[in-house]
Computed example of a mutant assay.
Amino acid sequence: MKRFDQINMIPFIDVMLVLLAIVLTTASFISQGMIPVDLPKAEHSEQAKGDEKVLEIAINAQNQLFFEGMPITAEALASKLDAHPNTTPVLLRVDKVAAFEHFIDVVDVLKAKQFAEVSIQTEHPQ
């Protein structure tokens, strides 16, 4: 019987490269800026239409405000919205346990900046 003096590392490297590709691919799907928001359910919700650029504003369960996935204050939100035309669609994602006051603060900023195309994301009950 022939004795093995060395280990062939090429199959091991091939397997590791495939696993690395899988991990990087799934990590990009996971980290696409999704802020954990438990959306309220609505019986008569509609599916979003179009592929145009949508500004996303989210409020999580801890009443933290996010603009395009980044934490922000209500005052800073107003200045960020100045960089976009008021015809840009806005999507509000608000956690169902978030304080209503924070939702009203965001809507007030949107009204002050005259954004008319505002949608509120909800979940359809199963």
Score class of each variant (00 low, 15 high):
48 A>W: 12
103 F>R: 14
59 I>L: 12
9 M>A: 06
95 D>I: 08
7 I>M: 08
102 H>A: 07
3 R>Y: 03
63 N>E: 12
53 K>D: 07
41 K>Y: 12
80 K>E: 15
107 V>I: 13
111 K>G: 04
76 A>W: 04
64 Q>I: 05
52 E>H: 06
24 L>W: 09
100 F>L: 08
57 I>S: 01
124 H>V: 15
111 K>E: 13
15 V>M: 10
89 P>E: 06
35 I>N: 02
19 L>M: 14
54 V>I: 15
6 Q>W: 01
61 A>T: 04
13 I>P: 02
124 H>G: 08
80 K>L: 03
78 A>I: 00
101 E>W: 04
98 A>V: 03
39 L>E: 03
69 G>L: 03
99 A>L: 13
15 V>E: 04
17 L>Y: 01
61 A>S: 15
77 L>G: 05
97 V>C: 02
81 L>S: 07
93 R>K: 15
122 T>M: 13
43 E>S: 15
108 D>W: 05
111 K>D: 14
47 Q>I: 10
106 V>E: 10
29 F>Y: 14
45 S>A: 15
126 Q>N: 09
117 E>Y: 03
44 H>F: 13
14 D>N: 05
34 M>C: 00
61 A>E: 12
80 K>R: 13
32 Q>H: 06
7 I>R: 09
121 Q>G: 06
47 Q>Y: 08
25 T>H: 04
5 D>F: 02
93 R>D: 02
31 S>T: 01
13 I>D: 02
64 Q>D: 14
86 N>V: 02
70 M>L: 07
89 P>N: 09
98 A>K: 06
20 L>M: 11
42 A>Q: 13
76 A>R: 12
9 M>Q: 01
29 F>Q: 06
33 G>N: 08
46 E>Q: 14
57 I>M: 02
69 G>E: 02
106 V>T: 10
53 K>F: 13
115 F>L: 11
8 N>K: 12
8 N>C: 01
41 K>T: 13
12 F>Q: 02
112 A>M: 04
104 I>S: 09
20 L>I: 06
